[in-house]
């Protein structure tokens, strides 16, 4: 019986340790293909060249246009999700009845459960035609629609994490503010939001990380034209879209074009890895402060 206990514990241990293997696998796969990519393309060119045309006859390997496209859609998404998400968090905490909060929170979560292809369809077929009525220069594929829809998708991420952070602020602080005759609005922005700021920052960082890695919405609605621009009205291409674009085509394994998706992938991975760990670090520091 003791032996079987040990065997079972060993199997459970193995299952847990597999998660480390996944990380190792991701890093190994990305690194090994990227290293072979960078033996053919200099890292200087990769970082400084202003064009990305690996699939054309005149090949240029500058990641900047893809990074710019990614950051552009992300910026639009955060510009939508942050004010709305944070307002929801404050409203639910300071204004809404507990019962409304109970009903609304799961309803907002529905936004996060909709598959992203569906959002992409929405951006392309509803939002872009709608915006074209007001913005004449808006192209059929653009960063704006994709970003807005992505923003709607990540509203619950910001609202629920920020709401948790705000409701974790000690009651005494809030009562002190009300005690001095503050309105709910003054209490929220003068006391609660500053006190919960690190939690709110964490929610925004995680939302950025999510937006940077989002694929289907931008692949459907933002275009496939790598372009170094800050103009949200024209077609662009994100890192994720490029990977999809290559995956859909007939790029032979082992070719330089094939390796580009791993070089693009490791760029993306570094972005999200840094953002995620930044958020853990802030969260940890913040928790220690309150304990």
């Amino acid at each position: 019986m003791r032996a079987s206990e040990k065997i079972i514990e060993g199997l459970l241990w193995l299952s847990a340790v597999i998660t480390i293997l996944i990380t190792v696998g991701i890093i190994w796969v990305l690194l090994s293909e990227s290293i072979s990519f960078f033996s053919e393309v200099s890292i200087i060119e990769f970082l400084t060249e202003k064009e990305w045309t690996p699939l054309f006859a005149d090949k240029k390997f500058g990641i900047m246009p893809l990074v710019a496209g990614t950051l552009l859609t992300t910026a639009v998404a955060i510009a939508v999700a942050l004010p709305i998400g944070l307002t929801i968090a404050i409203y639910l905490n300071e204004y809404a009845h507990a019962r409304l909060k109970q009903v609304v929170k799961p309803m907002l979560e529905v936004l996060a459960t909709i598959p992203t292809v569906v959002y992409g369809f929405f951006a392309l077929t509803v939002v872009t035609p709608f915006l074209q009525q007001f913005i004449p220069g808006l192209a059929g594929f653009n960063a704006l629609s994709a970003g807005i829809v992505m923003g709607i998708m990540i509203i619950p991420m910001i609202s629920s994490l920020s709401e948790d952070a705000i409701s974790a602020v000690p009651r005494s602080l809030r009562e002190a503010a009300y005690g001095m005759g503050s309105t709910r609005l003054q209490t929220s922005f003068g006391v609660m939001v500053p006190a919960a700021s690190s939690g709110i920052v964490v929610s925004v960082i995680l939302a950025i990380s999510r937006a940077v890695g989002e694929t289907m919405i931008v692949a459907i609605a933002a275009g496939q034209q790598p372009r170094l621009t800050l103009n949200p009205l024209v077609p662009i291409e994100t890192i994720t879209t490029y990977i999809v674009q290559v995956s859909l085509g007939d790029v032979p394994q082992g070719s330089l074009e094939y390796k580009t998706i791993f070089a693009a992938g490791i760029t993306l991975f570094i972005f999200t890895f840094v953002l995620n760990n930044l958020s853990f670090w802030i969260k940890k520091k913040y928790q220690e402060k309150y304990d």
Binding site: L30, T215, F273
Partner: peptide, 18 residues
């Protein structure tokens, strides 16, 4: 393991594809 799992949860799905 815990830190690693949190990290994995934040890796974009397309990277899992690679």
């Amino acid at each position: 393991l815990e830190i690693n799992i949190s990290n994995l949860a934040g890796v974009p799905s397309i990277i899992y594809g690679l």
